[in-house]
Design a binder for these strands. Structure first.
Lengths: 221, 221
DNA sequence: CGCATCGTTGAGGTTGGTCAATCCCTGTGG
DNA sequence: CCACAGGGATTGACCAACCTCAACGATGCG
């Protein structure tokens, strides 16, 4: 999850200037947005919908490195090419900034650069969290961690029984958690049978025992 | 691996100013440097030796998120606390910058901030690489990837038969690759038996067939 | 209604983990 | 010089978590 509402770093004047160079694009579910190795000509900001970032191995194995939602931002590459592919999970609306214009703006607006730096630091921290998950957590702990993270992003997170929206498919959850679809499904079923969560529909999960879920996520059972 | 020689971003005058607030510290092998959750009072730059960054689960499982070497830099946290622990792998010499002074310098020197931003971007890209490794690669591919990465860092990488220096223990390689010590050892043995590498001593590996190793690392066999 | 897609469940296999014995290397002391 | 101890590395036997393959169920759309 890269940072939300980066535009808040801009003054009204800067924002107006930026608006001139911006175009908007719509993507249907599963539509490819950028591909690993493409020239990084654009920076993108998500207006609505969910987008996945992923890396792939030649034989088709996929690792999703993050899901982006409303307000998230991507395409600030270390090199001239994108290092990851991006694909729409749901239908999505994106703001497109030509890279050159954006770079110019960056030079004129140190606040913006600082804000992007903050986002990058948050991203590094999140990546390390995810490395711990991928390298050392069990399937059960991974799924619980995922649900906790998704609950934290949802509006009703503060409620006694948070409800979680899962716009992505089981396969995509699996590719994010380094598991198979079947293992994700089985794990969710067992969490349901234990009364930790309730699965209303594939895309809608209620957390019945948030503390238990959190404990499982942290490997504290 | 966070960025090398960040000091190159500094002008002579800025460097001189920085030098005033810098102190140097020595650490013995396995000595703790900072601990996850500690107040982030210092930024550190490695002068010599190897340092590991890691996150741990309450039951002792460890995921090493990176090894740092000469010139690498760490301690730019997104929050007030360190999100990872750091420990000396070999005996090491570090430069210590008090955070407040460093922040002040940062405000005065946009070049430095830009440089740190670049480092953070590189770090994000490296993290994503490692997520692919942890989430989707086999033990064999992980070990091969690790050897390739270590070879790329070594001086004699350009030689026809690159030699690799491994200052860290097998356990540490395992904690970096999301495996066990035993699996790392077995995998190295099988690569040796196939004539891909030669293991001179635990800390010294020669790559006999670099292309093969690279293919294995990328899952292209 | 029929089809397609996604999700769930089951049976069995494989990779990598666990536990334990042995090896190797280094350092120490007799 | 050798014996010994100790830590890391290697190897082996066994096991379990997760994957694979396959069947079945649910949901949504034309």
């Amino acid at each position: 999850m890269q940072g939300r509402s980066f535009c808040s770093a801009l003054s009204g004047r800067e924002f107006a200037r930026l608006a001139v160079i911006v175009t908007s694009r719509s993507y249907g579910a599963r539509q490819m947005i950028v591909q690993e190795g493409d020239q990084a000509e654009f920076l993108l900001n998500i207006v609505s919908g969910t987008v996945k970032l992923y890396r792939a191995l030649p034989d088709g194995r996929v690792q999703i490195v993050g899901f982006l939602g409303e307000g998230d931002f991507f395409g600030v590459p270390a090199t001239r090419c994108y290092a990851v592919s991006a694909e729409a999970v749901t239908s999505a609306q994106l703001c497109v900034f030509p890279r050159r214009s954006f770079d110019r703006l960056l030079n004129e607006c140190p606040t913006l650069e600082r804000r992007l730096f903050e986002l990058a630091k948050t991203e590094v921290a999140a990546s390390r969290d995810h490395m711990l998950l991928l390298g050392r957590k069990t399937a059960r702990e991974r799924v619980a961690s995922f649900l906790v993270a998704m609950a934290d992003k949802t509006q009703c997170a503060r409620a006694t029984s948070p409800c979680i929206n899962l716009p992505m498919a089981r396969t995509e959850i699996a590719d994010y958690l380094g598991l198979t679809m079947e293992t994700v499904s089985r794990t969710l079923t067992s969490l349901r049978n234990e009364g930790v969560v309730a699965v209303q529909s594939p895309g809608h999960v209620d957390v019945l025992r948030p503390d238990t879920l959190r404990h499982i996520a942290n490997g504290e059972e």
